[in-house]
Computed example of a mutant assay.
Amino acid sequence: MNPLRRLICRAALLAAPALVAGTAAASPASPREGAEYQLLPEAQPTDGPGKIEVIEFFAYYCPHCYTFEPYLADWVRKQGDDIVLRRVHVARGAQVAAQQRLFFTLESLGLLEQFHGKVFNAYHVERVGFTQDEQVFDWASRAGIERARFIDTYRSFGVQAKLRRAQAMMEAYRITHWPMIAIDGRFLTSPGMVGESGKISGDDALQGTLQVMDMLVARAKADKK
């Protein structure tokens, strides 16, 4: 078995069967700090003045991130100009380094919107490994990206700086599992948190996360007035 296949996203609640039914301690409709979301001890600087910054910490190999992606994309479309979305591919050792570098290369080339979903599909559906640089280069060529330009960017100081920045952000935001959503540099939520708190899983946890995100965006807007 490919060693990368054995990597487990820590938000495993999404793949688990629903827990025994009962009265939930909280719900996405009335989220509580420490349950469906957390407040960071120190607010982090944000980009996108005039808008609410939403950051997704994710990884291409993560099956929960793959499942969450269409939900998040639809949610972002509905927000219109109220938010700005940033994605940060998390670090997870040498086996994920090529995937992380692939993400930041696409971002640097201005190709992320075009190819982000295709990378997810390549890994989870087509079973492209993305564990070695050459696997990434071959995929990029097949996808129609100029190979030499892609490799130059992949190995550039600019991408290396993005990798360092991603690691610093993971530490600053105290990212322990993914997908994890940060809002306005102050709040964190995730399908894992929502699922655990409400004793729900699957689609319920994903939809519940979007509800919590709606509330946190609204709160961030109100705080800025």
Rank of each mutant, 00 (worst) to 15 (best):
A73C: 00
A148V: 09
I151A: 05
A11K: 00
R87T: 13
M193L: 10
R174K: 12
P191T: 02
F103N: 10
F150K: 10
A35P: 03
T131P: 09
D81F: 00
L14V: 11
Q132V: 02
A168T: 10
P3N: 04
D82R: 12
Q114V: 06
A97W: 02
Y154D: 02
L102C: 08
I151P: 05
Q207T: 12
S201P: 01
R32Q: 14
G50V: 07
H177M: 10
E33Y: 02
F104H: 14
Q44F: 02
S190W: 01
W139N: 06
S201T: 15
H177Q: 14
A218F: 05
Q114T: 13
G202R: 09
I8D: 07
I55P: 09
I175F: 03
V88G: 09
E69N: 14
W75I: 01
V212L: 08
R155Q: 12
R5I: 11
D47L: 11
M1D: 03
Y154F: 13
G50T: 06
R186H: 01
T105E: 08
Y66R: 09
T131E: 15
L85N: 06
M170D: 11
P179K: 00
D47T: 13
V76S: 03
A24M: 07
V119T: 04
P28C: 05
P31M: 06
P41D: 07
L72M: 10
A172G: 10
D47V: 09
G202A: 08
A166E: 05
R174S: 11
S156K: 05
F68R: 01
I145S: 04
D214M: 11
D214N: 15
M169P: 09
R149D: 02
G198P: 00
R149A: 14
H89E: 12
L40A: 07
G202K: 08
L7D: 00
M170E: 15
R186P: 01
S141W: 01
T189S: 08
E69V: 08
A97D: 11
E69L: 11
L206A: 09
K199Q: 14
V88R: 05
G198S: 14
E42T: 15
A161M: 10
A18F: 05
V96T: 15
L111V: 03
C9W: 02
H177F: 14
R87C: 10
A12T: 10
S108H: 12
T105K: 10
F150D: 00
K118R: 15
E113N: 13
F150E: 00
R219Y: 00
